[in-house]
């Protein structure tokens, strides 16, 4: 089956590649995303590998008490402590990640009061708690993108299903669905989010569900209209004449043709999800205090105008991320448009 379909997918891939901007954006975005997925081995306050006394240790993965390396205390080793470093280097070596801070690591050896400007040790400076901005950016990027992807997929699936069912079966179902959407859309989203976040402790999944309550409606109207249009087309009639069951007609003939409109919306939904999480974090209603996120970085930038590296970093990263997503979305749209001619 896969071998048989390959010419079609080859064509789609070619169309995607033909959009050079989108193609490059995809590569840049994927690289950044993969890098951020590996954040633990890139920015961490523990070494990746330690060789000590002939044995190999991976502190990134496992906690070792200080006594392992000949120390006194049975507590987990603090590898940033010069004492501990000295103990290890006596009988072995340390392989550090490129950035020797994790998102929560406070740099106690700053020469200036936090937030401190960019230096060799902290290339993007530190925030007002003395934490390395580059490390926090890496972790925050990962959190934002993962959150956005999950929210986009979940709200698209729900929205497409709801829209398709309304458009295809019509009648009372459609009428009631539309009225429900109008009422739902009239709810004051932000107030509800503020109220909810004061009742429950916000976390990744709770925030996701709360945001999903409102974001799934984005695609419903669009898919419904596309399905209504496609329902009366000749090829749907021809499929009925072939004896295809209604469900299969919906899945094979109607939905795929409603997909281009959906795909053009997907990047905007993704960027919208990123922005809503960032906004909540910025307001302090998002992820638990202290978690690294783009919104938290921006809010630090706002509160510390004397430290422009915070705000500028947050802005540049967010703007670049959103731009990349839109470019990728354009290329995806080209790929799924069969009328697009390849040059």
């Amino acid at each position: 089956m896969a071998g048989r379909l390959s010419p079609l997918w080859q064509r789609r891939l070619d169309a995607f590649r033909a959009n050079r901007r989108g193609w490059w954006s995809l590569w840049i975005f994927s690289t950044l995303f993969v890098v951020s997925l590996l954040a633990e081995v890139i920015a961490n306050d523990r070494p990746i590998l330690v060789g000590y006394d002939g044995g190999l240790y991976a502190p990134v993965l496992k906690e070792y008490p200080e006594t392992t390396f000949g120390g006194i205390f049975p507590t987990p080793a603090d590898y940033r402590d010069p004492e501990v470093q000295g103990l290890i280097e006596e009988k072995g070596w340390i392989l550090w990640p490129p950035v020797r801070f994790s998102a929560q690591t406070v740099n106690f050896t700053l020469q200036q009061p936090a937030p401190s400007p960019p230096s060799l040790e902290n290339p993007l400076g530190t925030d007002d708690q003395g934490r390395d901005v580059l490390a926090r950016l890496l972790y925050g990027f990962r959190l934002s993108v993962l959150f956005g992807l999950v929210l986009t997929v979940a709200s698209s699936v729900i929205g497409i299903l709801a829209g398709a069912v309304q458009g295809f079966f019509g009648g009372w179902l459609d009428l009631l669905g539309q009225r429900f959407l109008e009422i739902w859309g009239g709810l004051p989203q932000l107030f509800i989010l503020i109220i909810v976040s004061s009742i429950i402790v916000p976390g990744f999944w709770t925030l996701l569900i709360v945001l999903l309550l409102f974001s799934w409606t984005a695609l419903v109207g669009l898919v419904r209209a596309e399905v209504l249009r496609a329902r009366s087309l000749d090829y749907v009639r021809a499929a009925r004449a072939l004896g295809l069951p209604e469900g299969r007609i919906l899945l094979r003939h109607v939905l795929p043709n409603a997909m281009v409109a959906t795909f053009t919306f997907a990047p905007f939904i993704l960027s919208g999800s990123l922005v809503s999480l960032t906004a909540l974090d910025f307001l302090g209603l998002g992820m638990p205090p202290g978690s690294a996120s783009l919104g938290e970085l921006l809010s630090q930038g706002k509160e510390n105008l004397q430290a422009p590296w915070l705000g500028i970093t947050g802005f540049v990263v967010l703007a670049a991320l959103l731009t990349l997503l839109v470019f990728i979305g354009e290329a995806v749209r080209d790929a799924f448009d069969p009328r697009k001619t390849l040059r």
Binding site: L233, R237, A239, A241, P256, N257, M259
Partner: peptide, 17 residues
């Protein structure tokens, strides 16, 4: 019993080979 429609552009799903 099968059918062939008038409009050669509308009667074939554009997204299927």
């Amino acid at each position: 019993m099968q059918v062939v429609f008038q409009d050669p552009f509308g009667s074939l799903s554009p997204r299927m080979s």
